[in-house]
Design a protein around this nucleic acid. Structure first.
Ligand SMILES: [Mn+2]
Ligand SMILES: [Mn+2]
Ligand SMILES: [Zn+2]
Ligand SMILES: [Zn+2]
Lengths: 155, 155
DNA sequence: TTTGAAATTGAGACTCTGTATAAATTATTG
DNA sequence: CAATAATTTATACAGAGTCTCAATTTCAAA
């Protein structure tokens, strides 16, 4: 039987915890697996909710604590939307990218631009700054919402 | 007697309000002036606190409402720090720029790169997106904190 | 395997931003 | 000077996230 992706990531998680002198508890495993199942943006709430539905009951505080560990570890990344709500994004299996966010409908369009990524590194060198990660979000209107607003104004 | 900057901006504020069918109230003037006095990043709390200390007493709700108007108007811009705390930044008198944020000491280093700004526009065109503004924050360690950590590890 | 120290968890109280409500105040208009 | 509309205030409320500390679990030494 072959090791699954989940097994491999769980191993990495376990190693990380040991390295930090932390224990691999049942609760941490449950939370880790649930987070691992996310293919795209998600919120802390959805993790808490899913766990509550399943058989593994885990408290809210533990979910937040474990997600903080996963963030330190670099498996997920937190980002804040327009309305002080924290969103997370899985970083395993996904290439880094940035976001266009529609202020009307909330749609999130992903993009990646290597030229910008390179320029960011140049800037950090100039400023003697040692980057760990970055967030770039362009706000505005998506094609559909821009069209809709346009039509509305004509009426 | 010459018109001060404050007078000019207050005029712009007054015009904006009129255009929107809103009244220029004493409370809005107080809040506007306090915000105008900010030369760099600030939080809603500090505005509320300063007003509470001064003679013009204004309620929390009114401060939030007025700051929302100022944001719509483009005089300030909201941004979120690492810990879902909203920070504002004055946009009058200041040119747009982005941020390097030290995760150790919280220092904020400002920068501006026209190449990146142009590339952002190109991306929006490609994606048929109509941008209103953007936020770009690079997290990591500033020169001092990186040096400090380095030394610490050596001990 | 047992055992005890240390780490972790869970329940719920609490904090902090920010928003909603509805009565009281203020501004505008005729 | 009314009548009307907009605004403000106080206060209650909501939601995300943190804190506390007693109870439980983990781990590793014996
Ligand atoms: Mn994304
Ligand atoms: Mn700035
Ligand atoms: Zn849209
Ligand atoms: Zn620093």
């Amino acid at each position: 039987m072959r090791a699954t992706h989940q097994d491999l990531y769980l191993r990495a998680f376990s190693d990380y915890l040991r390295k930090k002198g932390k224990n691999l508890t049942q609760e941490r495993i449950s939370i880790f697996k649930t987070v691992l199942s996310k293919k795209s943006h998600f919120e802390a709430d959805s993790i808490i909710y899913e766990l509550r539905m399943g058989e593994d009951r885990v408290s809210r505080a533990t979910v937040y604590r474990t997600m903080k560990i996963m963030e330190e570890m670099g498996m997920i990344q937190a980002m804040h939307d327009l309305h002080q709500h924290t969103h997370y994004e899985p970083k395993f299996l996904r290439r880094h990218h940035d976001h266009l966010i529609c202020e009307e409908c909330g749609k999130v369009i992903e993009f990646r631009n290597d030229e910008i990524e390179n320029l960011q590194e140049v800037i950090c060198e100039q400023k003697k700054f040692y980057p760990s990660h970055h967030i770039m979000q362009i706000y505005g209107l998506c094609h559909e919402c821009h069209g809709a607003n346009h039509n509305k104004r004509r009426l």
